[in-house]
Amino acid sequence: MADEPCISRSDHATLKRHAFTILVIEDNPDLRGFIREGLGHFNVIEAADGEQGLLMVGEHLPDLIISDVLMPGKNGFELCRIVKAEEATSHIPVLLLTALGAVEHQRAGVDCGADDYMVKPFNLNILVGKVSNILTARARYREMLLKGVSEPGDESRVVKNAFIEQAEQLILRHLAQTGFGVEDLGRALHMSRSTLYRKISSFTGVSPVEFVRRVRLRKSCELLKQRPDLSIGEVA
């Protein structure tokens, strides 16, 4: 029996709290199935080439992409470069798989923005371990970020990415406009409602509606602490 990937109990518990989706892009159906089975405790979606993979990235906004490099049409380097260049998908980690083991090819993977790189043939348990490490770190960041959004005083301890920072600032800038909601936020960020939903939920684990509510609530709590003479109705 093959060794199980080494995942600590705390990491396993962290991963269970989040419904992560992994996109596997591989033109070899047998290898694609092999990877899917190894990642059975995650939600795995599949694409047979780079073109189909890009369509699925836009449609599903997965939490992690595992992609072959040598594929018909767009190769893994091109796919990774496109994913990392788009605002809506730039946050998605990309792990490249390839038979190209030369240093210059690994450097090409780094240059296109890949977060990790594995040379074929690879050990499935090591792949699963890498995936678990990436997603555990993402889950913990998501939990810290959500705590910073929700609780007064905690936001200073969280390093936020530019997108979440921009979204928060837009909400706070329109705090006096009670009608400012998800549609307005999407327009200000130049994103469709569906893209905004996937992007915010990917970072925070909550919907844009809940995200806006928590940012407003946190600011209201801060104002009440600063101005105890105000009523809840005056800061709501």
Rank of each mutant, 00 (worst) to 15 (best):
Y141E: 10
L145M: 15
P5S: 14
S150R: 11
A2Y: 15
I66Q: 08
P93W: 00
R32W: 11
N43A: 12
E51I: 13
Q166C: 14
H91N: 02
R173D: 00
G186C: 03
R140T: 04
S150D: 12
F163Q: 02
G101M: 10
D27P: 13
D229M: 00
Q106L: 09
V83R: 02
G233L: 02
E104H: 15
K225F: 07
S10C: 07
P62L: 03
V57D: 05
M191N: 03
N75C: 11
R198P: 01
I232E: 10
V119C: 08
S202N: 09
G205T: 02
T195R: 06
P5K: 14
M71V: 06
I35E: 01
T21C: 06
S132Y: 00
L175R: 10
R9D: 15
R107S: 14
P93M: 11
V24R: 02
H190D: 13
C221Y: 10
V215K: 10
E26L: 04
L146N: 12
T21D: 03
T195P: 00
I164C: 09
G101P: 12
Y197T: 08
D68E: 03
A167S: 15
V119P: 07
R187V: 08
R227H: 13
D229N: 01
P29W: 08
R227G: 00
L217D: 08
D30C: 01
F77V: 04
P121G: 04
V24F: 11
E78H: 05
E87T: 15
D11F: 05
A114F: 01
E151C: 11
A188Y: 05
V212Q: 06
R9P: 03
S194R: 13
L185Y: 05
R36P: 05
D154S: 07
V103S: 09
G76S: 10
A85T: 05
G76P: 09
L55M: 14
E168Q: 15
G101F: 09
N75R: 09
L127V: 13
R198Y: 07
N123T: 13
G53A: 14
V94G: 05
E210M: 09
L145T: 04
S207T: 15
L97W: 00
L223R: 08
T136I: 03
V83F: 01
V158S: 00
P5Q: 09
P228T: 06
E4W: 11
S231Y: 00
V235Y: 04
V69L: 03
E46D: 08
P121I: 10
L23F: 07
P72T: 02
A114W: 08
S202K: 00
I232Y: 10
G50Q: 03
G148I: 05
D154V: 12
I35F: 04
L124D: 08
F203L: 09
R138V: 11
L185W: 11
D115I: 00
L61S: 02
Q52Y: 01
A188C: 12
R198F: 01
D27R: 11
P29S: 06
I92G: 00
G53Q: 12
C6S: 15
Q169H: 12
K225T: 14
S194E: 06
Q226E: 06
L100I: 05
G50A: 06
F20A: 11
L146V: 02
H12F: 14
V57N: 06
C221V: 10
G148K: 01
L217H: 10
S220W: 05
S67G: 11
G113A: 01
E4M: 02
